[in-house]
């Protein structure tokens, strides 16, 4: 049976003493890689981003990168400002935010991120099967529930589709308000489950979110799904991307690309990818694919100016 003497015990304790001292000392170098993200839940996102940042920094030591830092901000405007000022090097975001960052700060798409394991996703509009809305045109004078004003599939893309149909959306403060008969009322309800619940209760006539939310029980319980119908699907868009600031040191940019591309084959990265919003892998996008994301800025501008 294990029974250490005093010497063994002191040796073990010394190891515990040395471990944190070494780690802390090694992170005091000023050469820093900064990852940025728009977040309204920084506590959660911090845990997502940190493992990947540590993993990447560890593989950039020969380039003089010694430590990583996370910068999260509340809005796309703030993030664009930080990227433009060179204070954020690397951003992980959804396509709409990527388009905005490219337009306003010159950030460039590095790779596609298979966030939650998916390369693409699309918007689904849905309503109660026994309700009055059978197609998008039926939304006139009715209310649709959306997530929040930063969402790609649950705000910008569905509103753009409504506008393209020649209908005018109008934001309501509450689903209890009545929209003008010639306009489509919309409300923000923050979470996907709230969208599903409001539609199920008949408090709003329709909802829109991504096809991934449609098949996720936490966001749309199966008992609701059975009573809903998809009335329209929009074309697929890229799920998520990694961007870097335009003037990032080319060696760092190249290394970051290499690290991310190789991560799926590195057993040590498996847990890191999982923490990084369950990313399955990263891959390269063609020039056209990147442009299709950058072009979403026009959608964003069109929607913003129409309201």
């Amino acid at each position: 049976m294990f029974a250490p003497g005093k010497t063994t015990l002191l040796l073990v304790l010394s190891l515990f003493w040395l471990m944190p001292a070494w780690v802390v000392a090694s992170s005091s170098d000023p050469h820093t890689l900064v990852i940025g993200k728009i977040s309204h839940n920084p506590k959660k996102h911090y845990r997502y981003l940190k493992p990947m940042l540590i993993y990447a920094v560890d593989k950039m030591r020969d380039l003089g990168i010694r430590r990583g830092k996370i910068r999260m901000v509340k809005s796309k405007e703030q993030l664009a400002d930080l990227v433009a000022r060179g204070e954020v090097d690397w951003v992980t975001e959804t396509p709409i935010a990527a388009a905005y960052l490219h337009e306003m700060s010159g950030a460039e798409i590095l790779l596609r991120k298979w966030k939650k394991g998916m390369p693409e996703y699309h918007t689904v509009f849905f309503s109660r099967t026994d309700g009055p809305v059978k197609r998008l045109e039926d939304l006139k004078g009715k209310i649709i529930a959306l997530e929040d004003p930063a969402s790609t599939t649950a705000y910008y893309l569905p509103l753009n589709a409504i506008l393209q149909k020649g209908m005018m959306p109008v934001r309501l403060k509450s689903f209890r308000e009545k929209p003008p008969p010639d306009k489509v009322g919309f409300v923000f309800v923050r979470e996907e489950i709230n969208i599903a619940t409001l539609v199920h209760k008949g408090l709003v006539e329709a909802g829109a979110f991504s096809n991934l939310d449609w098949s996720k029980d936490d966001h749309l319980p199966s008992q609701y799904r059975r009573e809903f119908s998809i009335i329209q699907r929009l074309p697929s868009v890229i799920r998520a991307v990694e961007l870097v600031r335009r003037d990032l040191d080319p060696a760092v940019r190249e290394r970051l690309e290499e690290i991310l591309l190789k991560a799926e084959d590195d057993p040590k990265a498996a847990a890191v990818l999982n923490a990084y919003q369950k990313t399955r892998r990263f891959d390269k996008l063609s020039r056209d694919q990147k442009q299709s994301i950058y072009d979403m800025y026009a959608i964003m501008e069109f929607v913003d100016q129409s309201l």
């Binding site: 839940n41 920084p42 506590k43 911090y46 996370i70 999260m72 901000v73 400002d81």
Partner: peptide, 20 residues
């Protein structure tokens, strides 16, 4: 842009925007 994010769903949670 350093700011606080305050949540009250459940207990009281206060986080700096950078999460640090």
């Amino acid at each position: 842009y350093r700011d606080l994010v305050i949540k009250t769903e459940g207990g009281l949670e206060v986080t700096t925007t950078d999460g640090e």
